[in-house]
Nucleic acid binder design. Structure first.
Lengths: 137, 137
DNA sequence: TCATAAATGCGATATAGTTGCATTAAGAAA
DNA sequence: TTTCTTAATGCAACTATATCGCATTTATGA
């Protein structure tokens, strides 16, 4: 957390209450949060509004501290980019339940190959599994 | 194509001009299309409107003939589910260029394992790579 | 050809994402 | 500490996307 704040400073961001509250919420949540989920979080709602949350997320994504995830049938969700290990998720197509998977990513080493073959740089990837959870099945 | 129409019939869908036009467009496009892209396609626009395209996509997805894809910074896109081999894409984070990758999916065999471990059924997954293309870099 | 229910068109509405502008406040400089 | 500059904010408006209700049309089985 200290680490993250420091990183924001280095990148020229001002350390405001909103920024801290948002980063805290993202840090405490064990799962990615959407703009709306952040917006209604009591700790955050008290301090700042939707537009601020939106722009703060933009800034954090801009400096690479935040990862934007795109799950089926839900808007974008965001999670802090601690370390550079990305995460895999399992999503229920019906109720939207989000589970984080514990696995070593099986496609990481492909990035370099794809980067060369296609002339792309700054590679990242998303690997997401979908299914029907026990309740929804 | 014949195959797909047959499948629609078996699933109880009525074979309308709209359905055929939409499936054709998706079939001819080498890449996934968004609702808007379909809506403005001349072949389709002539026959039916946005709500119909929307609901047709819903139906096709419902019977498993259509796959909904979620790429960063763009709305949902759709592609026909021919065979059950899914596809991998490489997306430019800036201009949004979409490339289909030719690779044998390295995580397919993980689905069964995850299904058991988490009590999920009807598993699918999405593997998408992002980067900056030559032009945008 | 007729009857029935699925599919459609239209317009309204909901939801997510985004912006302009006047105001506030973080942090560097004095 | 006070002052100054400019990033950050709040508010409200706005755009784009997604979705729905209902009256009408049309595909298909009898």
């Amino acid at each position: 957390m200290e680490e993250l704040i420091k990183c924001c400073k280095e990148q020229g961001l001002r350390i405001t209450k909103g920024l801290k509250a948002i980063m805290n919420a993202l840090d405490e949540a064990k799962l990615p949060l959407s703009l709306q989920e952040l917006e209604v979080n009591p700790q955050i709602a008290e301090i700042c509004d939707r537009a601020t949350v939106f722009r703060t997320l933009q800034r954090l994504e801009g400096i690479g501290l935040l990862r934007r995830l795109n799950f089926s049938h839900s808007g974008a969700k965001f999670s802090l980019n601690t370390g550079d290990a990305h995460k895999e998720y399992l999503i229920c197509r019906l109720c939207g339940e989000v589970k984080e998977l514990k696995m070593s990513c099986p496609v990481h080493q492909l990035e370099e190959k794809l980067s060369e073959e296609n002339g792309y740089s700054a590679m990242t990837h998303e690997l997401t599994f979908y299914g029907l959870c026990r309740k929804c099945n």
